[in-house]
Design a protein around this nucleic acid. Structure first.
Lengths: 129, 129
DNA sequence: TATTGACTTGGAGCTAACTCCATGTAGTAC
DNA sequence: GTACTACATGGAGTTAGCTCCAAGTCAATA
């Protein structure tokens, strides 16, 4: 697979993909004789991993650290587990904050829907709701 | 309430709070005769709003736009509803991506726990799991 | 063989959201 | 009155994560 295919598959730019490789968020990608990147299934998995974690807000640095440990072999199993556990914990917090914001917005939106109907915006809880 | 109190209450810095005010993510805060910020309950609500939304990843610009519309009065009810609905939709997407990443991490973590026990890291689904 | 287009590289540039700093002032403690 | 502290301001600096650019290479096509 070429870099263009991978970009389309994951909805990111070629620059981003090269950037991830440069900073180690994905391992070095194999090149053709002409120096062109060739992504195989394993490479795609690494891209998938990076993209998924980035979308959730995990830092490029943390992802790169995981890749680095991975490349060091079995001695780093425990270190990788710790890293993943820490990131998981962060995502748990993030999930809670996101949920809180969603609740805030949903409540405001319900008020605004009523306000657009009635012309009056009120923040008081009403009877029967 | 002084700026310091508000910082402690919400776990942010005074610089951040002044920054939010400067860019309009919260309305102008009243000052004492000496020019010191005095946060009343309404001001606190605005801070709460900004902090909550920021933690969920809503941009300072979007928050400021909401404040701007709010200050323009009832003509902007519909515009505010639209803005909030858009942000709500974004948060919904973010929630889905976050959930996906959490699932990825949880699965990896389960593999790594096993690997740390057995010394062997495997990505295959096992029988009876 | 000349042109075209997709790729390569290193490095500069950009944006959002803070974060820090220099300088100044109001209010209190001695 | 002087020192100290907590605040004020405008503006510069920082960081993460891209994003863009110039210059060059390679393969395929006219």
């Amino acid at each position: 697979m070429t870099i263009k295919d991978v970009c389309e598959k994951f909805g990111i730019t070629a620059d981003t993909l090269r950037y991830y490789e440069k900073v180690g968020a994905i391992p070095k990608v194999a090149r053709s004789s002409g120096g062109i990147r060739e992504y195989d299934d394993e490479a795609l998995n690494w891209v998938q991993n990076a993209v998924c974690l980035r979308k959730a807000g995990v830092s490029v640095e943390a992802i790169a650290e995981y890749v680095r440990l991975f490349n060091m072999g079995d001695e780093t199993l425990k270190a990788r587990l710790d890293l993943l556990s820490n990131e998981r914990e962060e995502l748990g917090k993030q999930l809670a904050e996101l949920t809180e914001a969603v609740e805030l917005l949903d409540w405001k939106i319900s008020r605004y829907r009523k306000a657009v109907e009635t012309g009056v915006l009120t923040w008081d809880k009403e009877e029967g709701e």
